[in-house]
Simulated scan of single mutants.
Amino acid sequence: MLDYRYDTFYTLAKQLNYTRAAEELNITQPAVTKHIQSLQAELGVNLFIYEHRELSLTPSGEYLFQQLDQLMPELHTIYRTLTQNSQLKIAVGRTIGECFLFQHDTAFSAFFDREDIELSIDTTDVILPKLFSNDIDIAIVAGEIDEHKFTKTHFLNQRLVGICSPLNNEVRTATTLNELTHSFLILRERGAGVIQVLKRVLAQSGLSIPQFKKHTHIANTDAIKKMVIQNKGISFLFDCSVKEELDKGILLEIPLRPITSFAFYLVTKKGREREPFIKQAIKELKKTI
């Protein structure tokens, strides 16, 4: 809906690299140059300056970029409302993916069977930048949410659970985090929402991850649980991730006090929660849990 030259300018202003802008726009680099030259000639101002092998925005270019950055979400809303045939892109954190997404005969899993939904699964720190750049429409994540950039709606609560092997006599009766610092801490990958939550919990007790005797990060929840079952260390995961193992008794919950519950949120880029398709999807998602 926007003049193609402004679209080219906006992409180049974000990338500050002609090659990357051309790749994102799926046009040639000379075409990018031509679009920018045409726009500058029409406006009568220079928008970019190239010095010391670096591309940067002029004051006029910075002003235009800021204005377009505010307009783009609204233009996106108008376009999607008029076309009504775009796919809704939803990203979920790994905990949601592991615990809820592939359960049979649930309203939540059935929601993602719709043909107009494109689903991805990743860590919170990967998802949120994509949400901000409009590559994703809705995210379902835990962890820190910048409320200046995003709008969040409560989705569900999960407890953060400390787990150990039934053979781990040293920590199986621990009630404080300080009693665990001599343990080998086996954690999800950096950037996972559960890590952000754990850091917050530790900080409340004046602790941090490096204060543990040893720690490692593994990007696979099943591998973490197997290592803990084999008494190679302890871990912290959301309770839905370990419910089956706790019910079977092959893992034990460390009886820490207080038991802490944390929220998962439906998150959109600020302002986009008003888009009809996103608003409707959030309404439907809230009914599935």
Rank of each mutant, 00 (worst) to 15 (best):
I117A: 00
E118V: 15
E118P: 06
S120D: 05
S120L: 08
S120V: 06
S120G: 06
I121R: 00
D122E: 10
T124P: 06
T124D: 13
T124F: 05
D125T: 13
I127G: 10
L128P: 00
P129F: 12
K130H: 09
L131S: 02
S133R: 07
S133L: 10
S133H: 10
S133I: 11
N134T: 11
D135W: 13
D135A: 11
I136M: 04
I136R: 01
I136V: 12
I136T: 02
I138M: 05
I138F: 01
I138S: 03
A139W: 03
A139P: 00
A139N: 00
I140F: 01
I140K: 01
V141N: 05
G143S: 06
G143H: 03
D146M: 05
E147Y: 11
H148A: 12
K149C: 09
K149P: 05
T153R: 07
H154S: 05
L156M: 10
N157S: 11
N157A: 11
L160N: 05
V161Q: 05
G162D: 07
G162P: 05
G162T: 10
C164N: 04
S165Q: 00
L167V: 00
N168I: 02
E170R: 14
R172M: 09
T173F: 12
T173I: 10
T173S: 09
A174L: 03
A174K: 01
A174P: 00
T175W: 10
T176C: 07
T176K: 14
T176L: 12
T176R: 15
N178D: 08
N178T: 14
N178S: 15
N178L: 15
E179K: 08
E179F: 03
L180H: 03
L180C: 01
L180W: 01
T181R: 14
H182F: 09
H182N: 12
H182M: 10
H182V: 05
F184I: 12
F184N: 12
F184T: 12
L185Y: 00
L185M: 05
L185C: 02
I186K: 03
L187N: 02
R188D: 15
R188H: 11
R188G: 15
R188L: 07
E189Q: 13
G191E: 09
A192T: 04
G193E: 02
V194I: 08
V197T: 15
V197A: 13
L198S: 11
K199G: 12
R200F: 10
R200E: 12
R200P: 04
L202E: 04
L202P: 02
L202D: 09
A203K: 09
Q204I: 14
Q204A: 11
G206T: 12
G206K: 06
G206R: 10
G206F: 15
L207I: 06
L207R: 01
S208A: 13
S208R: 07
S208V: 06
I209Q: 08
P210R: 04
P210Q: 02
P210G: 01
Q211E: 14
F212D: 07
F212Q: 11
F212Y: 14
T216R: 06
H217L: 12
H217R: 08
H217I: 03
I218R: 01
I218S: 01
A219F: 08
N220L: 06
D222Q: 09
I224E: 04
I224P: 04
K226F: 10
M227W: 14
M227N: 09
I229N: 02
I229W: 03
I229F: 15
I229P: 03
K232E: 12
K232C: 11
